[in-house]
Write a protein that binds this DNA or RNA. Structure first.
Lengths: 218, 218
DNA sequence: TTTTATTTTTAAGCATGCTTAAATTATTTA
DNA sequence: TAAATAATTTAAGCATGCTTAAAAATAAAA
C-alpha cells in the first residue's frame, strides 16, 4: 500500500509515451492533476529506483524495468475492469474509476486468478488491449476516430476512450457500445458536429464526442 | 486512498474493544505492529475527527460515528473474504491478507454488489459474522475454544481465528474446516496438547492451535 | 539572432504516519 | 504507603508526496 503514486506515474508514462517512448513532464502533470513541481520530484525518485531514464530539462523514458512494471499495472487495471463489468455486472462507465483503486491493492496471484476465471480476455470493456502475464499486448484492429468518417460511411465501434465517466454514461444512452454499428448521415462543417444512426435512431453528436469513439476500418 | 491507516486503527479498536467498549493503546500497537508513540499520535487525530472519545492516559472508546465507520470496515473486509473464497476460489488461508488490502480500495457500491451476488452471506470463511448495510451483526452460535473441550467431548467447528496465514494453512492440512466434526481423544496436562480425530484421522495438536479453533456448544 | 513565451526545476513549506529516546502518569507489589 | 514496574505520552526526526512562488533552461516568434 506504499507505491500508489509511483504506480500511477508509471502507468501514465506508459500510456502516453510517444512513438519514441518519450513523454513531457507537462503531460504527466495534466493526466494526474498535480503540479509540475510534483512531477519533477517524482521523476527523480523513479530515476533513482531505476524505472526511468531521466536528465533534467531533457526527455523522460521508461527503462526495461519501468516498462515491465507499468505494463503490469495496465494489465491489472484492465483485468479488474473486465471482471467488474462481466462478473459483478457493473456498468462500463463505472469500472474505470473502481479499477483505478483496486489495481494498487491486489496481489499478482489474485489478478492471475481473475484472468483465468475470465478465460484470458484480450480486451477490456472499452476495447483496450490487456497485456498478458508474459508482457504481450494484443494488437488492436485498425481503426480511426468516428469524427473522421465521411458522410455515408459506417462501421463498428471497436474502442472508446475511458477517461471520463460522464462521457461513457452519455454514449451509453445513445446506444453506443463495443461492436455496435454506427452510420454517419450528415456532417456540419461549421462546428464539426455530425448526425449518426445507432440502432435505427438518429442522433446529433458533437465533434468532441466523435473524437473519442473509434471505428473499425474494413 | 487516504485513510488506510485510520481505517486500520478503527477496525482494530472495534474488533478488540472489551465488553465496556474500551481498549488499551497497548493492544492497538501490538495488533498493528507499530510503536506506542504512533498509536498516541493517531488517537489524537481520531479524536479530533470525532471517531473516538479519548483522554490522555485514560480509556479509548469509539463514538457512534467511529463505531459505524469501523463496523463498515469489518463488513467490507468480510464480504471481500467470502467473495475471494467462493467466487474466485482462493483458499481460506489467503483471503484475509488479500481482503486487508482490498477493503480500503472499494466503493460501497461495489461492496453492495458483491454482497447481492453472494446472496447476503451471514458469515465469512472463518466463521466471523458479517455486519449488514444497516449495521446489524448476525449472532454467533454459542461456542468455546477447542482447547477447553474435555477428553471424550466432540463438536463442530464454527469459527477459527484468522490472524495468521500459516495457522490456517496448517489446520487445513489436518482437515479442519468450518462445520467439520472434531473429537477429543486425549489431553496431556503437562503441555496442554491434545489428541483429536478429524475425518477419522488422529492428530496431536498444540494448546496454542486448540485455542484458536472454536467449537459449537450443543 | 534576440526577444518572448513556455516548460521545467529549485526552494521552502505542509500534512501524514511512522521511528527512537526520554519523560510522565498509572498500576502493582512489597 | 512507598518503591518498582508497566503503560502512555512528548519530543525530535525522517520519508513520502504534495503545494506555491521564484529561478533557470528550452523552444518559438519577431
Amino acid at each position: 500500500m506504499k507505491n500508489i503514486s509511483k504506480e500511477d506515474y508509471l502507468s501514465v508514462i506508459f500510456k502516453n509515451q510517444n512513438s519514441n517512448g518519450e513523454i513531457k513532464s507537462n503531460i504527466i502533470a495534466g493526466k494526474l492533476s498535480v503540479s509540475n513541481a510534483a512531477v519533477t520530484d517524482m521523476l527523480k525518485k523513479l530515476s533513482k529506483d531505476g524505472y526511468i531514464i531521466y536528465e533534467r530539462y531533457k526527455g523522460i523514458k521508461l527503462t526495461v524495468d519501468g516498462e515491465n512494471y507499468a505494463r503490469n499495472m495496465v494489465r491489472r487495471h484492465r483485468i479488474w475492469e473486465v471482471f467488474l463489468n462481466q462478473i459483478v455486472g457493473m456498468p462500463w462507465e463505472k469500472v474505470h474509476e473502481e479499477a483505478n483503486k483496486l489495481e494498487h491493492s491486489s496481489s499478482d496471484d489474485l489478478i492471475n486468478r481473475l484472468e483465468t476465471m475470465l478465460d484470458y480476455p484480450e480486451y477490456d470493456p472499452h476495447g483496450d488491449p490487456i497485456p498478458t502475464k508474459e508482457g504481450k499486448i494484443p494488437k488492436l484492429k485498425k481503426h480511426r476516430p468516428l469524427s473522421e468518417l465521411k458522410e455515408g460511411e459506417s462501421g463498428k465501434v471497436i474502442r472508446v476512450n475511458d477517461f471520463d465517466e460522464k462521457f461513457l454514461g452519455y454514449i451509453s444512452e445513445l446506444g453506443i457500445k463495443l461492436q455496435e454499428k454506427i452510420s454517419v448521415k450528415q456532417k456540419r462543417a461549421f462546428d464539426k458536429s455530425m448526425e449518426v444512426v445507432v440502432k435505427g435512431k438518429l442522433w446529433n453528436i458533437s465533434n468532441k464526442l466523435a473524437q473519442n469513439v473509434f471505428i473499425e476500418v474494413k
